[in-house]
């Protein structure tokens, strides 16, 4: 049976799409047949970050409206074997997704895939609720600042009351992913620390992704940052994937880096 994982946050622009692309790629790299779905209808971002925007012919909405088959719409990733993308439509409006339609698509995907990653739109309204409704697990993406944490708290409340799992009396397994973490700004108290966020949300920590220029570079190149294994962000996403698979990996990149002698000399980062 496929595992359905929603990547959600409440607040916008915190790194959901970056995370969906990285985690999906990471799972495929570990040998799991994975599909990542863009639920952000109307905005369509995932295909850019996955670098497949020019290969989009049909999209999620076409499949739901039976204008195309799933196989026609699925895009096979060129870099990572076993990875597929189901892009969102840029032209439709948000109401184009229907609950029954989404359910049918997920059921069909579940026959072929081991992991289904759902990239949620921002907000706590219908679009976000649609993306999380069928989830078995949720990666709650949070930035270390008060408004993002508050929104994450809200979306967790919704996960545990309005998802199918919750309606059936179960729970959606929660994972906290803290992104854009900047230890220097935490040290100067401009940002919340990992401990602060864990204390407020009380959700197991899947990983901490440092603020990194590699993310922007990766999205410009259309290659998920997890493929950039030189970068701290890429390594942190690799660790997060391992933890998602149940491995016990120590958290890294939490402390302010003491610049080494050479680095100080060269002024490098």
């Amino acid at each position: 049976m496929a595992k359905i994982i929603v990547v959600t946050s409440g607040k916008g622009g915190v790194g959901k799409t970056t995370t969906s692309a990285a985690i999906a790629t990471g799972l495929a790299m570990r040998g799991f047949k994975t599909v990542v779905i863009d639920f952000d209808v109307g905005l369509r971002n995932l295909d850019l970050i996955m670098g497949c925007e020019r290969r989009v012919v049909y999209d999620f909405v076409n499949v739901i409206k039976k204008e195309a088959t799933l196989n026609q719409a699925l895009i096979k990733d060129k870099r990572t074997p076993g990875l597929f993308i189901l892009p969102a439509s840029q032209t439709r409006d948000k109401d184009a997704l229907s609950m029954e339609g989404v359910q049918t698509v997920l059921e069909n995907l579940a026959k072929d895939f081991e992991y289904i990653i759902c990239d949620s739109p921002a907000g706590i309204e219908q679009g976000a609720q649609m993306a999380l409704y069928f989830a078995d697990e949720a990666i709650v993406v949070t930035n270390p600042e008060v408004s993002s944490v508050r929104d994450s708290d809200r979306i967790i409340g919704i996960l545990q009351s309005k998802s199918l799992k919750a309606e059936q009396g179960g729970t959606v397994k929660e994972h906290l992913l803290l992104t854009r973490y900047n230890p220097e700004r935490v040290a100067s108290a401009e940002m919340l620390s990992v401990a602060d966020v864990e204390d407020i949300l009380a959700v197991p920590l899947l990983g901490v992704i440092p603020e990194s220029e590699a993310v922007l570079k990766a999205s410009n190149q259309g290659a998920p940052v997890i493929l950039d294994q030189e970068s701290e962000a890429g390594q942190a996403y690799l660790d997060a994937v391992s933890r998602l698979l149940g491995e016990d990996v120590k958290h890294r990149f939490l402390e302010v880096q003491k610049k080494g002698f050479l680095k100080r000399l060269l002024g490098g980062k």
Partner: peptide, 8 residues
């Protein structure tokens, strides 16, 4: 027994 979250 579970946290009461923001908005609930």
């Amino acid at each position: 027994t579970k946290p009461v979250r923001s908005g609930q």
